[in-house]
Amino acid sequence: MLVVRGGESGKGDLAALGALYDRHASMLLAVAFRLLMSRADAEDVVHDVFIGLPEALRRYEERGALVGWLKRVTVRVALSRLRSDDVRATQVLDASFPTPSRDVTATIDLDAAVASLAPSLRAVLVLKEIEGYSHAEIADMVGISVAASKVRLHRALRALRGMLEER
């Protein structure tokens, strides 16, 4: 594991931070993007995560993988942004995105359907079905009960199914 020393921002620290970015930023950006459905907001989240990383790493306990810890921190920052009114308008089909390897039409439909879900439903759907968190973990991160997490997932899936059937 690379260790970034907090407090200073010498060349070595920045190099280590840059190396962490190179290794994990795309994965974290994907997590933030799926939650926020806005590239600009997702980039702001990743920016903030890496800016705060040297100090946060002091609190990191090596009881789990660094990747998992980074993802959870990113999810918390993204959810914090999601709860605010500051999330910018959704822009799903950015031309600069990498080309998907799957059926493009189906993916675009699903992109649009997921993006059009209410943020509170989308968050639970993404965390459960894509990121693989348990309802207990989601409840903790989102600040709701386990039952509410299950209800939101149910509603998200129903809404998603309804939208895809219409297309």
Binding site: L17, Y21, V46
Partner: peptide
């Protein structure tokens, strides 16, 4: 599987430079 394949942006070098 389709959800896992949703298109997402890649972290750019511009963001890296801004952060650093």
């Amino acid at each position: 599987p389709e959800l896992a394949g949703l298109r997402t942006p890649r972290a750019s070098s511009a963001l890296r430079e801004r952060m650093l």
